[in-house]
Design a protein around this nucleic acid. Structure first.
Lengths: 177, 177
DNA sequence: CGGTATCCCCTAAGATACTG
DNA sequence: CAGTATCTTAGGGGATACCG
């Protein structure tokens, strides 16, 4: 076993019905964080989405996920299996055949995840716009900072070379605040 | 800018209405993956949850998140701001004061995330049970494997010491297939 | 075919120190 | 107070090799 959740921490108790961030914060050590880590890792989501269509063999998954290493596929499947999201069926034949399928639990999770995907699709334009705007602002601020730095440098040089400060005006021609 | 999404890849085009995993797989390079990485990273979720209650200053967040480093909080907030999920307001006072708040977009995301949290809360018992069952099975298989290994070792030693194989029966007393 | 074991690299994130 | 800059380390993940 490579990791595996110390049993003493696995249950934190659900205190009440309300939605309290402090509780949430505490629960982070609990389950929410773990499930989130599971579905958010590089491959799990893809595997779940694939298996929601039909059950697949190891090699089929390997081919369809494209880019995943044997090691990571095995790890991902072990994790999903341990959490009860995916079932593993070994057919005792030659060559060996192992089928992976989404459990009912896994299916409900996938359902929930789809809400998130839908949200993303709905708002991707807004996000793209926000990013573009941010990047423009950031670039502008960067230019600004560069100019001021250049001005300071130039002023410092002037002071050193001429043994004293020049007129109260920086290189960019603006008056300092 | 430390990283930041090469512009040429940011839009993949939404081809049709159907839900196709292959498309999804492709879209991974697009937006879904990025948003998922954003909301799934170690701190973003907590910050969003906190800000959904009320706007907070940098240090307030730092205190409430508990465990986050100054560096990571700053990074997390920059990311969320860039994606248009959180707004940053600088009050030009001494000492400086900066307020962070959830944007309307961020609020809708938080709404969606809550579905996931609810799912987790609803199914955490099932997950815990699945893990326990898995661990029991794994432990049993491990014991089994260890026993067989010990048996093989013992048999090998017996062969070496006595110059030939013993009776057709292994140490565990079972007949080989 | 369906894995596990091993090595190794690279980056994300923590600690620390400094700045406007 | 609200950050950025720099250094360092743990572990996620790829490549490879081998087992049942």
């Amino acid at each position: 076993m490579e990791d595996g959740t110390s049993p003493s921490l696995s249950y934190c108790g659900d205190t009440d019905d309300g939605y309290d961030v402090r509780q949430w914060d505490v629960r982070e050590d609990c389950e929410v964080r773990q499930i989130l880590d599971r579905i958010a890792d590089k491959w799990s989501l893809l595997v779940i989405a694939l298996l929601d269509q039909r059950s697949l063999r190891f090699t089929e998954l390997r081919r369809q996920v494209d880019g995943i290493s044997q090691r990571m596929l095995a790890r991902t499947l072990r994790h999903l299996e341990r959490d009860g999201l995916v079932s593993r069926t070994v057919h005792p034949s030659v060559p060996p055949r192992v089928d992976y399928a989404l459990t009912p639990l896994g299916a409900t999770l996938h359902e929930t995840i789809r809400a998130l995907v839908t949200w993303t699709e709905t708002h991707q334009q807004e996000i793209a716009a926000a990013r573009a705007a941010y990047d423009v602002r950031a670039a502008a601020e960067q230019r600004q900072a560069d100019e001021e730095a250049a001005a300071r440098t130039a002023l410092a040089r002037a002071v050193l070379e001429r043994g004293g400060p020049g007129p109260t005006q920086d290189v960019a021609g603006r008056v300092p605040r």
